[in-house]
Design a protein around this nucleic acid. Sequence first.
DNA 1: TGGTTTGTCCGAAACGTTTCGGATTTTGGC
DNA 2: GCCAAAATCCGAAACGTTTCGGACAAACCA
Lengths: 338, 338
Amino acid sequence: MTTIKDIARVAGVSVTTVSRALNGYHDVNEQTRQKIVRVAKDLNYSPNTLARGLVLNKSKTIGLLVSGLNRQSAKDHFTFEVLSGINECVSEQDYDLVLFNTNTSKQREKTYSQLCRERRVDGVILSGIKTDDPYLHEVVASSIPCILIDIPIQSDSVGYVTTDNVLGAKQAVEHLMQLGHRNIAMVNGHGQAFVSQHRLDGFKQGLAAGGRPYNPDWVVNGFFDEDIARVEAERLLTRYPEITAVFCASDLMALGVLKAANNLGIVVPKRLSVVGYDDILLASYASPPLTTIAQDKFQLGYEAAKLLIRMLEGQDNSRAVLLETELITRQSTTGNHV
Amino acid sequence: MTTIKDIARVAGVSVTTVSRALNGYHDVNEQTRQKIVRVAKDLNYSPNTLARGLVLNKSKTIGLLVSGLNRQSAKDHFTFEVLSGINECVSEQDYDLVLFNTNTSKQREKTYSQLCRERRVDGVILSGIKTDDPYLHEVVASSIPCILIDIPIQSDSVGYVTTDNVLGAKQAVEHLMQLGHRNIAMVNGHGQAFVSQHRLDGFKQGLAAGGRPYNPDWVVNGFFDEDIARVEAERLLTRYPEITAVFCASDLMALGVLKAANNLGIVVPKRLSVVGYDDILLASYASPPLTTIAQDKFQLGYEAAKLLIRMLEGQDNSRAVLLETELITRQSTTGNHV
DNA sequence: TGGTTTGTCCGAAACGTTTCGGATTTTGGC
DNA sequence: GCCAAAATCCGAAACGTTTCGGACAAACCA
């Protein structure tokens, strides 16, 4: 493994000069610079980022703390697409990405900041953590630059990127209202997710805008799980047959609702309209294909990384990005002419 | 940021003793050890892995070089599940994972070994690279421990993990044969993938075992792309209407074949049976749900990481893992009674 | 000519850790 | 009480890089 010293010896200069030549400083003669570069190439030199990171006190590395990277979550494409987006941006900017794990008991013993300090990451992106996760408090307390995905918290060292969940949910309700639906239920995620709170707000706003009252009995929690959503939907639809439309806080849960309807002999969309959220891959393959509120998950990750890197390099002091959502109309919703 | 020196000062011992105490050496008094540990905790110490890596010359980090981590490949869950498996194992063993990118032009300028040496990764896992990828030659040439996914190359420093693609393809053909099919076509990936070569071998073996001749005109390449597969299948099925079954080297391509059949008014499975490969999530949601050869992608990643770490720690000298495949029978195949 | 600027170069310290070799003290056996 | 062995500790070098402060010579200006 050739080092800067080897180059210095061969080129007949000091290590200082080699370092400065390779890093593009001006105070080195053009001829010697070229010579050094040539020797470096000859010796097949590549710099040791550990050593560099040690003295510079930054690693050109950003950490990623996600919860959705295990066998179970395979169905949910969300994490993957976000990761792809992050990866894309990060590699464009010549940073590297290191993956942390939060779900093993071993890592649980370590605190968030320990994790970050050990690996000397310059910044972190967190995704998929709940509002009551102990890590979340640490993030705000710690001074490590950090971007949260889908958690609207801001401070000097933390920013976030999310989609406009209030507006998205409102769009869904408005869509159903325009189709003539009056009795609209909601299958939400759970209280420990900001997105659930926001989507519920949007749901209420949508109802209010259409002059309909909000009925808490018609809102159930599916915990972002297909099967739980199915069970809850079966109960809901059995007890309140007057419901003609359901808005779900995720496509996965919408799939559960489709199954519930199927089990109960309720035809979608003829007797029940269903709209999902996310626009996951499965949405267009479901039967019937799912009307849904699409969010650009890749972009979510990309913007998160972009924002973080801008923070790290002090180029900008904006701390939040809000992405738009889009209503995708497919065949799970239709007009209600009761 | 507290260092080992701070601890030494506060505890009234030398840095040597602190280091040895924290690393569990025996030549330090139990009382002083406890004192040091306590001080370390008080000062909220966490070790600097950069500094440690520098002197130990290893980073407890493994690199991941994948090609399927971009916007386009979102449909194909393969990379994600492999990644999940790798991540699971790696974090169990207290290693960290750093993601490299091969698809941006910037990174293209760097050679494989430069990438690895710079980041001082202890080993690498490669996935999704083609047989003619320049990186592949470098891997074998370099001495960095490496595990290839789905590329059967072995040496002192490189191992691989893959599924039994020959057997898998053979299973598919045998299944179709048992259903009475005689005229079986194949939509393969492309020649630059080992899995394609192996699945073609298995396809031939299956035909031979059933006493049927191999007809190269009935094998087309779909390049693992849904749309290309669709176009190729349309051409194939139009030109050779006697074909009653198609084996596809990936589920994604099988979906393309389903579309092709649909476009041509050919009913699946009544007039055409289709078998896929992979058992991606979409397979069970397709209409009709896809009969397929399942491979455990999560396990593939998990075993890759396990093998690599065993290599790194010199525990074992096996260099290859072969996973089994399983035929999943759904509704895209049925008996042929012509 | 003398002084100042400019262009090149380098020595040495620093980053935080590990570890070799040795030093010092304590213990044990007789 | 003496010597060897064991227990405990530490100094200093090393890993590969960056950078501060300065050195030296050449060029410039008056």
